[in-house]
Amino acid sequence: MSTPAQRRCVQVLNEALHEVFAERDDVFLLGEDILDPYGGAFKVTQGLSDAYPDRVLTTPISEGGLFGVAAGMSLRGFRPILEIMFGDFIALGMDQVVNGISKFREMYDDQVTVPLVVRTPMGGRRGYGPTHSQSLEKLLLGIPNICVVAASECHDLRGLVVNAVEDDRPVFLIENKLMYGRSSRRPEEGHVGGLAVRETGARYPALSFSGTDFSDDTATIVTYGGMVPVVLEAATELILEHEIFCEVVALSQLLPMQLDPVLESVARTGVLVTAEEGTLTGGFGAEIAARVQELAWSDLRGPVRRVAARDGIIPSARPLEDAMLPGAHDIVGAIVALEAVRS
């Protein structure tokens, strides 16, 4: 029998969904092709329709309608979970999100809540092409009154799912596609591999990694989701090849933005690099950079550097896709360049 650390992330997510269905009879699942035996495009929902046939509802290909139905259900006291097959398709439901789901609670003076969860896979590196490979989290970061959470293989996936369902806000739970097939890498005895780890006590925790036990790192890298393993690879390469030690802050809650662990790290290191798989302009990194420079200008010893995908489409051809998306070498290059300026 596999231990929790050995289980694939898709198994952990699936078990968490089964857990919330067993414990709450107000939870419903809506989505396309989620019925057994198929169990969803990435198999996260397998077994749920057989176990709870009255609460797992397969839907037509109409994301706008799917968001609208879920909003109505949540206003009536249910807690629907939407599975949007690919994160690219959230654009089809944005009117419901921007002009309804995110506004109802404030419009009606806190007399109603909209406790729904939107689960969706984001990210490339699988050769799916321009319309099935994007990381569109930044489209959500400017919408007030929603919560955006990004899972990674190092975070407590069960806790993220359970807490999202219990949250009275609309929650977008972003799941990177490559994460599904990877093993969960939860900290053991305060470490992941050779890196020390700290975890905040928030509903959606941030993880901080350090090769010096947070005593002598010279740069901070802030990231989330599918970029976490890429950044950890870069951090290891920086130690082994360049003798540069970095703190890595892996956020799970992107909105409202968790800045405390970022500011605490920057106060120690004085250098900040952001890393995201989405395109560069107007992204997560831009918002982090703006806020850190506003709140911690005196701690910074140089400009914030952003690592992200190029502004353009994601090609289907894998070599071109790899050239478009940020890799460990891009992060290493950004840190080495900042270190060169300092010296």
Rank of each mutant, 00 (worst) to 15 (best):
I90M: 08
E339F: 05
L272E: 07
V165E: 01
F67M: 13
V292A: 08
P121H: 09
G31K: 01
E294I: 09
L195D: 11
T236V: 12
A334V: 06
E241R: 13
T45Q: 04
A219M: 10
L195A: 15
T59P: 01
T281E: 10
A16V: 05
T45L: 03
F42Y: 14
D110W: 09
A71E: 03
F89V: 08
P37D: 04
S252A: 14
E321R: 01
A235K: 05
G270L: 12
L141C: 03
G159R: 07
G64N: 08
E199Q: 15
P4Y: 11
I34E: 00
F78K: 00
R169M: 06
A51Q: 06
Q258D: 15
G226E: 11
I146W: 02
R24V: 00
F284Y: 14
P121I: 10
L17E: 01
V192P: 04
G181I: 04
Y128D: 10
A91D: 06
R55W: 03
M324R: 13
L82Q: 04
C147Q: 13
G87E: 02
L92S: 03
S74A: 15
L259I: 11
Q258S: 15
R185H: 05
Q96Y: 08
M73D: 00
G285P: 06
F21P: 01
P115T: 01
R185G: 02
A206Y: 04
E243N: 13
W297S: 10
P60C: 08
D50V: 07
D33V: 04
Q6E: 15
V231L: 08
L325Q: 04
S210W: 10
G124P: 01
V262P: 07
T3K: 10
G211F: 06
V12C: 02
P4A: 09
R126Q: 12
G40K: 00
T45D: 02
V292P: 05
E83N: 03
R310S: 11
N176F: 11
E264S: 14
M85Y: 03
F209S: 00
A309F: 11
P37T: 07
E188F: 03
R125P: 02
H191K: 15
F21H: 00
V249C: 01
A150Q: 04
E294D: 15
V230M: 09
G65I: 01
E106I: 13
Y180H: 14
L178H: 08
V222T: 14
D33H: 09
S2V: 10
Q258A: 14
T45N: 02
E15S: 12
S152V: 08
Q293H: 13
S135L: 07
E321S: 01
R203I: 09
